[in-house]
């Protein structure tokens, strides 16, 4: 049986629609007007024990609301969530004892105390045997490089240091499931890398089920095998990450800042149509989209550099928003979008 089962999950918020101005605010006290907003619209999925699933979508798509219902923080308007056989918001104590969570926006550690004190308190709250706790602590300390950090009060830690400690706090009681909501938000590449490797490692070695929401596609690519994409409260894709990556994530866009462009450039770009999709071109700025399975970034540069002086360049990865957008476009074009050859994509 699946460890997480979600059936027709639906959540609607009542929002008090505020009128503008002071008079409006006074009127609002006597005649509050409510509108309902659907955050999660009848979604279904199930997750097996030990899976690492990326749960992605644009801002406001319903990610956090889903996670909050899975953890029991919010009660669904209708539909059902079963986590390890329990209904999270009803059997809170039972459910909470087998889960761990990180919410990137807030801390679960005591602000004025060093992380080690939080860990010890967690040990007491979850009744973790001393031996198991010590083993976990030393493993995590090594993997996340926490040795120097766990004795410094949390308020004195940098964002990256704090997040590493936070991640350890979510795993220290050996949970069966860990929910990570934007764990890498605002962090530099080095820290992101450490955190990804840690999650990957624990997921594999201890078969902890991991559910990860993020805006960083790299997080998903490195940690998860499966991805669920949600938009407007509905699941628009649920499947292997490779398929999504092959069909959509293989494009990159290069921005060139240029000077002294020769007129021949247009002709040259035309001959490379198979690999390059010119997105836009102005005298000082060229944007080129390319298929990174067919051509490398340096080859793209070699094509353009003889005809222009390149002052600066940046390479952009596709954002989750653009992937969701492309998914839609493809679904309209062809319902069976996964099997479609991505090369035929029109831009």
């Amino acid at each position: 049986m699946a460890i997480i089962e979600v059936n027709d999950l639906y959540k609607e918020y009542k929002i008090n629609q505020k009128k503008e101005g002071v008079l409006g605010a006074i009127g609002n006290i006597f005649y509050p007007r409510y509108i309902s907003k659907v955050a999660v619209n009848k979604i279904n999925f199930s997750i097996e024990e030990g899976e690492a699933v990326g749960y992605i979508g644009a801002n406001g798509a319903g990610k956090s609301t889903t996670i909050k219902m899975l953890t029991g923080i919010l009660t669904p308007t209708s539909g059902r969530v079963l986590v390890n056989g329990n209904i999270p918001y009803k059997h809170r104590v039972k459910n909470n004892s087998i889960i761990g969570a990180v919410f990137g926006q807030r801390t679960q550690m005591w602000w004025d105390l060093p992380p080690i004190e939080t860990y010890k308190l967690i040990q007491k709250i979850y009744d973790v045997p001393k031996k198991q706790f010590d083993e976990n602590l030393s493993t995590f300390t090594e993997l996340l490089d926490l040795k120097e950090l766990i004795k410094i009060p949390v308020r004195q830690l940098s964002l990256g240091q704090k997040m590493r400690c936070e991640i350890a706090a979510a795993f220290i009681h050996d949970p069966k499931i860990v929910y990570l909501d934007e764990p890498t938000i605002g962090l530099d590449i080095m820290v992101k890398d450490k955190i990804r490797n840690f999650i990957k490692n624990i997921n594999k070695k201890r078969s902890v089920t991991v559910i990860l929401t993020t805006h960083d596609l790299q997080d998903i690519e490195e940690v998860c095998k499966r991805v669920i994409i949600i938009d407007n409260g509905q699941v628009v894709y649920d499947g292997k990450i490779e398929e999504i990556k092959n069909s959509l994530g293989k494009y990159r866009t290069v921005h060139f800042q240029v000077k002294n462009c020769s007129n021949n450039l247009d002709n040259v770009l035309d001959t490379q149509k198979e690999y390059l999709f010119e997105v836009s071109k102005s005298p000082y700025d060229i944007q080129v989209k390319f298929d990174r399975q067919k051509i490398t970034a340096s080859e793209v540069m070699n094509i353009i550099s003889p005809y222009c002086d390149i002052m600066d360049l940046t390479i952009q990865e596709p954002s989750i928003e653009s992937i969701v957008r492309d998914l839609y476009r493809k679904q309209v074009d062809n319902n069976d979008f996964i099997k479609e050859n991505a090369g035929n994509c029109k831009y």
């Binding site: 909050k68 953890t71 029991g72 923080i73 809170r92 104590v93 039972k94 909470n96 004892s97 889960i99 969570a101 919410f103 926006q105 807030r106 801390t107 679960q108 709250i125 979850y126």
Partner: peptide, 14 residues
């Protein structure tokens, strides 16, 4: 107001 109540709801205690 700041949503920190979430953290209290995630522990296996009252």
């Amino acid at each position: 107001r700041q949503g920190n109540f979430d953290t209290l709801l995630l522990r296996p205690i009252s």
